[in-house]
Nucleic acid binder design. Structure first.
Lengths: 229, 229
DNA sequence: CCAAAAGTGTTATTGATACACCCATGG
DNA sequence: CCATGGGTGTATCAATAACACTTTTGG
């Protein structure tokens, strides 16, 4: 609260909705608050923006502190600024979401949190402050973005099967997709390269593995190509 | 600058990209700055957010001061917060755009401006601060939004012809559209009601006039209808 | 040989695009 | 009667959606 006092009257913060994919579900990394208000509530990880820090760097700092990762996909979503959104003063907050591969991180509670844990997005009932509204707006934007930009791969290991990718899309869009149509469309865009590997040790026919060709996407994009699922 | 001093070190502002439609072109309302920095440059109308003012109300206040109108379509676009974006201190700014019918306003220079004028969007070469970047992001978002939401009507008089509407779409999207296909699609959505009026005093066949049925749109939207042009 | 998920094509329907002439009015 | 923009329909092509069986592996 000491730090807060310096900023108060008018502070700006960022909140970062960190998405991951696990157990076939879209998940989000939440912290358990260790102080009032909303003590013991789950909340989005957030931080005040430092005076000498670019706005877009603040959510990346959160990721570094919480999950020790850098170089993450990040998208700004919306800025929330109702006068009464924070009970202790005027805080305008900029919401971001980021996509990370859960396998590569083991989140540790940072200075500002008691506990950190992954939660299934579509099972969350309440959060501290207006964080549920913020989460929902980020989910909506993710659902839009994933249909028109090849960003889902950020949530998967480098090498993945088409079924794995499809379950990811289904988890995010919260709907079932047709297997044959999904594969047809995904492969027709020529953004996946055959990894020349197959799944191992599975009790069924092993799936062919692919990886996403980012360079090729950048090239195609310049030529006017539009990703579309 | 006196007001500014109170806020500085960390201030948040809004900038409002006010779009209008005139002479067949997409236009934007700019102010000419009357002080340093960027004295005599054209700039987006902006304002610091008052401590007791909801964020979304700040751009509406700008509209009230500059054009004496209320009840305007408004969309938040993006928040710009690079440390060096403002030469005099740390200012994070939230960009909004709004759509108004030029016929209903006669903008007057407000306290913070020397001069106000409409400019053709696609002819603007430079603006104060990073306002060109902000303008461009708002134009891009308007172009996206107008394809999927029936918002263009805000820029027109209540009663308009299909050709009028088409020139508006062409001006915003900066591209030519096929007349028959445009009309077919627009009418098929059943969002326009025949105004039972025709143009008058034109030296050619007078056009049938329509108006946008907002209630009907809200109803259809609830049933899962998606606007699409 | 059983269970489990991988992999694979065709058809029908829908939506998108391309395109040219006649009409009504004012001057 | 001329100039101007208003108004209209069809045919082709591309994209989407629906749908069921065979294959490969581990146990």
């Amino acid at each position: 609260m000491q730090l807060l006092d310096n900023y108060f009257k008018s502070a700006f913060s960022v909140d970062n909705v960190i998405f991951g994919f696990g157990s076939g579900k879209l998940q989000v990394l939440l912290i358990k608050r260790g102080e009032e208000p909303y003590n013991d509530f789950w909340a989005l990880p957030g931080a005040l923006v430092h005076p000498d820090e670019d706005l877009d760097d603040a959510p990346l700092r959160i990721l570094r502190e919480l999950a020790s990762i850098d170089n993450v996909f990040l998208e700004q979503v919306h800025t929330f600024g109702r006068v009464d959104r924070h009970p202790q003063g005027r805080v305008i907050t900029v919401a971001y979401y980021s996509l990370i591969n859960k396998d590569e991180v083991s989140p540790k509670a940072a200075s500002f949190a008691n506990e950190v844990a992954w939660h299934n997005v579509f099972e969350i009932q309440s959060l501290a402050f207006d964080h549920l509204e913020i989460l929902n707006s980020c989910v909506a934007q993710l659902q839009n973005s994933i249909k028109i930009k090849p960003i889902g791969f950020e949530l998967l290991p480098e090498s993945f099967s088409l079924s794995h990718l499809q379950t990811l899309y289904e988890a995010i869009l919260n709907t079932a997709l047709d297997k044959r149509n999904f594969r047809k469309k995904m492969l027709s865009m020529k953004l996946l390269v055959d990894d020349l590997l197959y799944q191992e040790g599975v009790p069924h026919r092993p799936a062919k593995l692919f990886r996403f060709d980012k360079d090729r996407y950048e090239t195609l994009k310049k030529e006017g190509f539009n990703f579309q699922i």
